[in-house]
């Protein structure tokens, strides 16, 4: 039987994962790969949560489990009031859960040979929408996502940004309560990414105003995307290493960062008692909550003729502080 989650909980909690584990069997005698390791996470209804981590950190695996595209090896997963994955045997309850779910995977779930309208009609049929209901939903989605003039264009002829908007329209056509976005802006330029995230923010506001809050779980490896969320969950090697509001995560590491391009800066920063790390671009980063130490380091660098800049900590710095690895570096498989 699908276990209906506790009634009072299901009113406030969209996702609750407990000790979730997913391992993939190793091929040709290799040891099994652990994609998720004892992960526990609770997402209240209406919250926008960004899963932040490099490739291989387990973000997509978690989204696949919640989307029912995969099953956990161990642990329990409840979403929208139903137990999903392991323990779910009732097909009707699973269908009810899926009816409230919208998913945008890394590859757009659109058929490139079909037009946007044909894709949306197919999507509508998958969610039991037909006739006038589907026509009205498609017209409304086309207006919402500025696709009216392109509805009869084949998806294969669209730009990346437009195809992503069409994919988002597809995922939201049935008015889901939980939206899962797995690296939804992959391959888009900065403007298209910003526009996509603006749309998500607007959708959430509208849903909240209408009294039907939309919960969003989005995976990303980009700091600026994660900054848009209410909450950032940092992942590393299948585990959660930090969890909180973006400002809280940045604030938790304290102080400021001092960055210099030259490798000669490292010993100077260390001498001034700064926490030193190497950025993905090879630059040297010194971090400290002590203003005097930062000022001393700055004057030492200036004396040595090394250019530098001082900036407030970023989510990337917070990730580095939590894992010892920069965000752009993949997890060890």
């Amino acid at each position: 039987m699908p276990h209906a989650a506790d009634a009072s909980e299901s009113d406030t909690i969209a996702i609750r994962a407990r000790n979730l584990r997913r391992t993939y069997p190793g091929s040709r005698g290799r040891t099994p790969r652990v994609a998720l390791d004892d992960l526990s996470l609770t997402v209240p209804i209406g919250e926008w949560v960004a899963l932040l981590g490099p490739n291989g950190s387990g973000k997509s695996t978690l989204i696949r489990l919640i989307s029912t595209a995969d099953r956990a090896t161990d642990g329990t997963l409840e979403a929208l009031g139903s137990t999903i994955g392991r323990g779910t045997t009732n097909a009707r309850a699973l269908r009810a859960y899926k009816s409230g779910l919208g998913v945008v995977f890394q590859s757009p779930g659109l058929d490139r040979l079909l037009t946007i309208r044909e894709n949306l009609l197919a999507q509508a049929s998958l969610f039991g929408l037909s006739g006038r209901a589907s026509t009205e939903r498609i017209a409304s989605a086309a207006r919402r996502f500025e696709l009216v003039d392109r509805l009869d264009d084949r998806v294969g002829s669209l730009s990346g940004g437009l195809a992503r908007r069409a994919d988002l329209a597809r995922a939201l056509l049935h008015h889901p309560r939980l939206l899962l976005l797995d690296e939804p802006t992959a391959g888009l330029d900065y403007d298209a990414r910003t526009r996509f995230l603006d749309t998500i923010a607007a959708l959430r506001r509208e849903a909240a105003d209408a009294g039907t809050p939309l919960t969003v779980l989005m995976s990303t490896h980009l700091m600026d995307e994660a900054e848009r969320a209410d909450r950032v969950v940092m992942m590393h090697e299948g585990r959660i290493v930090a969890d909180g509001a973006p400002s809280a995560l940045r604030g938790a590491i304290g102080g400021s960062s001092l960055r210099s391009a030259g490798s000669a800066a490292a010993p100077i920063l260390e001498r001034c008692l700064l926490n030193v790390s190497i950025a993905p671009d090879g630059g040297i980063i010194g971090r400290s909550g002590d203003r005097e130490a930062l000022a001393a380091a700055a004057s030492e660098l200036a004396r040595a003729g090394l250019p530098f800049e001082v900036s407030p900590p970023t989510l990337g710095d917070a990730y580095l502080a939590a894992t010892g690895r920069p965000l752009s570096e993949g997890s060890t498989p």
């Binding site: 029912t68 899926k98 779910l101 995977f105 779930g109 999507q123």
Partner: peptide
């Protein structure tokens, strides 16, 4: 990705 979107639908 089309198959995945079908399989996660009801």
């Amino acid at each position: 990705g089309f198959l995945q979107s079908v399989l996660v639908s009801p």
